[in-house]
């Protein structure tokens, strides 16, 4: 039920083509997959696994290395509050405490209405606007208790829907251009082309040509 939609699968396939090796698309594909449900559902992980040709355990293992991927459901808005050095010096922990009270959850928790998930994060590279926070990876800062409250209200009311899409939606612009360079043609011209690469290509072709024809 939470497999990737056909549309997203198509999008994923295009991304896979951009890379010299399928597996390289693993992280971009996880981002795309996370855009669908706000988190990486097991079914979506299985889809990504088959698209990039590794086992689901490896996709999950890889995704779990990265903070941005959620393997459990999260709220519509994930609020990441930086408490690292610059923000801390500007009162980030006090702000975090306020946020916890306001939302009634501690870091890692999701409000019962599934609207907000609160996270304590490492430096978000917004230190000139400390204390800075991100909502679904969109920046806000410098924050104080009052501006935080206003932000919550605006997010809830949908006023910021344009700026802050639901969690998981990362890059709203699709790449318009396929790989343009014909590497095969370039390779053909190269005299000193690595024999190994050529051989590997032949190998793959041969493997694809296994006879399974009706006439056999």
């Amino acid at each position: 039920m939470t497999h990737l939609s056909a549309e997203l699968v198509e999008k994923c396939k295009k991304v896979v083509e951009l890379y010299p090796s399928k597996r390289s698309a693993l992280i971009p594909l996880c981002h795309i997959a996370q855009g669908q449900n706000g988190w990486l559902t097991p079914e979506a992980i299985e889809d990504v696994a088959s698209l990039v040709g590794v086992s689901p355990a490896e996709v999950r293992g890889t995704a779990s290395f990265y903070d941005m991927f959620h393997l459990e459901p999260v709220g519509k808005h994930v609020i990441a509050m930086c408490t690292n050095i610059a923000c801390m010096l500007a009162g980030a922990y006090e702000l975090l405490e306020h946020a916890q009270e306001k939302l009634g959850v501690s870091p890692g928790g999701t409000t019962t209405d599934k609207e907000f998930t609160l996270e304590e994060s490492e430096c978000l590279a917004g230190c000139d606007k400390a204390p800075c926070i991100q909502v679904n990876h969109r920046f806000f800062g410098p924050m104080d208790n009052a501006s935080f409250d206003t932000l919550l209200a605006d997010l809830k009311s949908g006023k910021l829907a344009d700026v802050v899409p639901p969690h998981g939606v990362l890059i709203r612009i699709d790449r318009e251009h396929k790989r343009k360079v014909n590497y095969e043609a370039i390779d053909a011209e190269r005299v000193e082309i690595d024999a190994a690469i050529k051989e590997r290509k032949l190998k793959l072709e041969a493997a694809n040509n296994a006879t399974v024809g009706k006439d056999s």
């Binding site: 990876h137 890059i171 709203r172 699709d174 343009k180 014909n182």
Partner: peptide
Amino acid sequence: GEFALGLERLEAALNEAYAYGAVGS
């Protein structure tokens, strides 16, 4: 990855650059 806006701007810029002929073949 956390630079969502940056990524969007970069992706848009790359689309423009391809169209402009600055990238590709």
